[in-house]
Structures are given as C-alpha cells and as structure tokens.
Design a binder for these strands. Structure first.
Lengths: 298, 298
DNA sequence: CCACGAGATGCCGGATCTGGATAATGCCAC
DNA sequence: GTGGCATTATCCAGATCCGGCATCTCGTGG
C-alpha cells in the first residue's frame, strides 16, 4: 500500500471514472487503473464494480474510502503541522467540512478568502463529523463545519450556529409513498429504518429514536451506515427508509426519493465549531466572517 | 512522503541508531539514512540531531513521531479492517497500549497468547491515551490498556481495573532535591511545572492542578508536552518538575531523577478498556484473562 | 596510535512505475 | 443494425527511483 495508490483511489472514487481521475492526479489512465488493481489485490477484495465500462464503489470500496480520507487528511496535517512549527513554514488554515456543503458554502468562501489573503493557504478536509471533532480537539483542524452536536461535546468547543435546515425523508423510489409531495414521519412507522452509525455521527441513532418516539412509534432500525452516500445507497436498493438534513439532496441518490416532512418539523443546525481559548489571527477572523456571512444566505 | 520512509523513521527513532534500525526493517544502513534525509528535506527541518556519530531526536522529530505512529497504526487498521470484513480474512485482535508496559505486561501476555492460539493474529499499537480511546470508540482497536480515565469517558466503555501504581516525582538531576530518597509534593510548590498536554492525555492538566491544590499550592505550569518521553526530556534539560506514574521509569530519562512521593500518596490505576455491548469470541476472552492475570502480579 | 563502530556518500543494478499505443466493450445516434 | 464515441483493460518499452555494495569520514576506546 502506497500513498499514491490511496490518492488515485480517492480520485477514482470521487470521479467514478478512471480516466477523469487519472487526469485529476496527472497520470495516465493505464497507470491509475493498474495501481488500483494492485491495491485491490493487496486488500483481497474489489474496491470498484466494473460493469458496462463504468465503475462503481463496492461496499468494501465505500468502507475503505472513509478510512483513506482520514488517513490522507492526517498525513497532510502531520506534515503541515511539523513544517509550520519547526520548518518555518507559514500557518495553513485547516478546515473540516461535510461534502454536501462544498459547492454552496465552502468553495465560494475559500475563493473569496484567497482573494483577500492571497499569501495564505487553506486546506480542506472532507470528513465525517466524528472524525472532524476528534481532529479539532487535537488542534489538527482549525475549524469545523457540521450539523448538530451533542451537549457533551459542546462544552469542549466554541460553537456558533450558522443556519437551520429542515429534515426530509429518504425512501426508495419504488416505495408506496414515493409519489407524495410531503409526508408525516408517522406514515413510515412500519418501515425498516436505516440510520447513520454512532461511530461516525455522534448520537445520531438516539436522535432518530427519540424523534420517532415523539411521533408515536419506535423505528425498527435494520441498518447503520458509515456515511450519507452509503445510507442513500442502502435506501436506494430498498434497504429501508431514513431521514436526513435537506442538504443531503446534494449527494447522488439514485433510486432514492427525497420528500419533505410535513410533520413533525425536524430541524438541524449547521454549526461552526472552533477550539476554545485560542487566539485567532486576522486570516482566521476573515475566514470565520466569510463563512458566517455566506451561511446566512443559504 | 512515503510509507517506507515513515517506517524507517519510526525504527530509527526507537533504536536511536541508523544501523540497528536498518537491520530491524531489513534494509542496508545507507538506504535507510538516505530515506530519512529525503523525509527531512520534505519537512524542511531535521528530525535527528547528528552529533558525534550518534543520532538523537530533535523536537521536530519527537513531534512528528507521535503523529507518524498514529498514522501507521491507522493505515494498518484500515487495511486489516477492510480485509477482514470484505476479503474473507481472519479477525486480527488489535491492542492499544502505552510503551512503558510493553516489557512487563504486553509482550509476555502476547507470547503466551500466541502459544494458545497459534492461528490467531494480534497487532500491537503503541499510542497515547487519547489516540487509543478515539480508536477504540471507532472500533478500530479491540482493547486498550492505559492509566486513568475521566468519568465522562467511562460511560462509553467497559472498564476494568488491572492494578494500581504510585506516582513519583521527576526532577532534573541538577535540582536541589535530587539527592533525596523521597519528597513531599509541597516541597515543589515554587518550581516550574511540566505537564502532559490535554490533547493527548485526557484531563491530565486538571488532575495535576487539583492534586497540587489539595497539597496547598497551585502549580506554575510552564510547559505541556505531548508524550512521556518528551516530558522527561524537558525535565531533564531543566524545564521544570513533574509527576508521573512509577512505571515511567521504564522509558529513558537522562538528566532526570525520579523520586518517590512520600505525601500525598497519589495513585493511578492501570485500566483495561473494552467497547461496550460487544460479543467477544474465545480468543478475545483468553487475551483478556491473560492480561488480567499478568497485571495482578505487577 | 590504531582498530573498530557508526553515519554519510557515490555508483551501479534492478524492480517497478509510467506512458503511449492498442484492444475490447458498451452506449448512443442515425 | 451499424458506425462513431467514450471508457476501461492490456501490452510493451523507457525512465525513475530505491536498495545494496564499496568506500569515506569521524569519533571512541583500548
């Protein structure tokens, strides 16, 4: 297992195309294909389904991807941190986020920031909530953007609310309610449910259960997934139903229908999370201001 | 930055010798030297002091080492986990520990375990407490062995006490009290103090402060270090005084004198920590039994 | 003063990674 | 149905980079 193989893999997983991935990481397509094959041989399991000249992540691939993301993130941070502290390198701002906010919030903010502080560097890390918080606590990230935070955690960080989002229901397109314009949570009381795993999404299962109980039933949870894309994939193949913040619509969801919830109105808050008791420089303040401003417009 | 460079670096840092490290990782000494040079060039800072044909970790090296350990641990775990879950590989037991317990507890237990279950694999990961807990929570480790645990955390895990250890004081060998056979905590009330950082050692600073306050003073903490070796190095160069569990004597401490504390008697508990609500197989039970048994003899 | 040990340097051989050409396959339009 | 386009897999030659050997330097200890 080598770093370049992992980078090629992430690129391929994100592009869902060997050719585009190869272009993105500046190698030829055969070179990339081959390295991914080697990686698959080492793992002993295919990372991609190759069907009809297209590639799709296997379950193993999805599972591996989450870990590789964290790995590459930690690698980059270890290098940067050491360079900055001992190699006289300028401080890079490290920002954790959820991929569903990349287009609307993160990317425009970073573009604007780069214009104002052309000599500053910002590194972006697409990580699950749990992974973001762990790294913020270790000061390996400078700030995080994620939705919801259990009370236990709040006291360790400085937390600001950026915006509020409604929850929607995600059900298979073949589901009896898939044609509806809106639905009530209680209409899904007899369905199988898919949740996000607590390991990556703090307290998410408890949140689902208590929300449903307030609506008068206990959800029958049959699957817990490690990421939003995996959850949508599971639902799309008929594995059950689920709820999630509306911005989840940004991630691909073939076979899934997303329907607004008319009752109860469940909200999640998008939060900006900072370490407590730290002095912040001008760049940091600018970045925070830009994020706050932009988020208020969503 | 490549994986083999990181492995060479860890080997060199542990052996404090390029030649022995080279032998350990089965390459020639020049090859290893060169790769470490390349790594240093990439970081922009020396990882080792090279004086009089010997090598010593620089501050940058010590800092980088902690992160690289975690990185290699995570890499190995990502690979194993994926292989086991999707590649039909047999389950490996992953065990986190503190290096000071390797010789007396971990190594003998693992040897014994290998004899009883020759076909099982155990992987060992030398990690800071914080890193162990984070990885246990994500189920990337199966079991941790560490000292002390804040109450917040206890409720997330199953915790068993293995043994109790007295705290000792660590002071520079040049310190006015260095000749003493034992000393009271309050005799150090006017010294500069060195603590372990909260980022890697949960609540360690608070523990030091409250312990000192019970002894009638507030410690003037001038440095927080990321690891026990760094802390001992800092104390050894006159950076202050500190307290730590007696087993710290296992790690090299040039320039440091370790002296039993006559009052107050501060204890720490060595804990075995397991995830909650998991089914455990025979191998796991054997391992737990062996650890418990062995620890009671220390 | 010399021998030995440890790390640094130079050069060569070989593993392997890359890239370009090419083949095979599927999709889509006409 | 057929031809064009796109995408992935395969093959081979060239280049890169890593590792090993020999050697050098420096410090230590007898």
């Amino acid at each position: 297992m080598e770093f370049h193989q992992l980078r090629y893999f992430v690129a391929a997983a994100e592009e869902l195309s060997m050719s585009r991935a190869a272009e993105r990481v500046s190698v030829s397509q055969p070179a990339l294909s081959r390295q991914i094959r080697l990686l698959e041989e080492e793992i002993g399991s295919e990372l991609f389904h190759r069907i009809k000249q297209r590639i799709y992540l296997t379950n193993a691939g999805t599972f591996f991807l989450a870990r590789v993301r964290q790995l590459l993130c930690d690698t980059e941070m270890a290098l940067q941190h050491t360079q900055e502290q001992f190699g006289g390198m300028k401080r890079t701002l490290r920002l954790g986020f959820l991929s569903s906010f990349l287009d609307d919030l993160i990317a425009p903010v970073v573009r604007e920031f780069q214009q104002r502080h052309a000599r500053s560097k910002v590194s972006l890390f697409d990580l699950a909530p749990r992974a973001q918080l762990d790294r913020l606590r270790l000061r390996e990230l400078d700030l995080c953007i994620l939705a919801n935070l259990e009370d236990d955690e709040r006291k360790h960080f400085e937390v600001r609310t950026l915006s509020r989002h409604r929850f929607i229901a995600a059900i298979p397109s073949s589901h009896r309610l898939a044609g509806r314009k809106s639905l009530k949570l209680s209409e899904l009381k007899h369905d199988k449910w898919v949740s996000l795993s607590n390991a990556y999404f703090p307290k998410r299962r408890e949140f689902l259960i208590s929300t449903c109980e307030e609506a008068g039933f206990t959800p029958h949870i049959t699957a817990e997934m490690d990421s939003l894309p995996m959850m949508l994939a599971e639902i799309g193949t008929g594995g059950g139903v689920g709820i999630m913040p509306a911005h989840a619509a940004k991630v691909p969801h073939n076979g899934c229908t997303l329907i607004p919830l008319s009752a109860p109105a469940i909200h999640s808050e998008l939060l900006l999370i900072l370490p407590k008791n730290t002095t912040r420089n001008v760049e940091m303040e600018t970045l925070i201001a830009l994020i706050t401003e932009r988020a208020s417009k969503i």
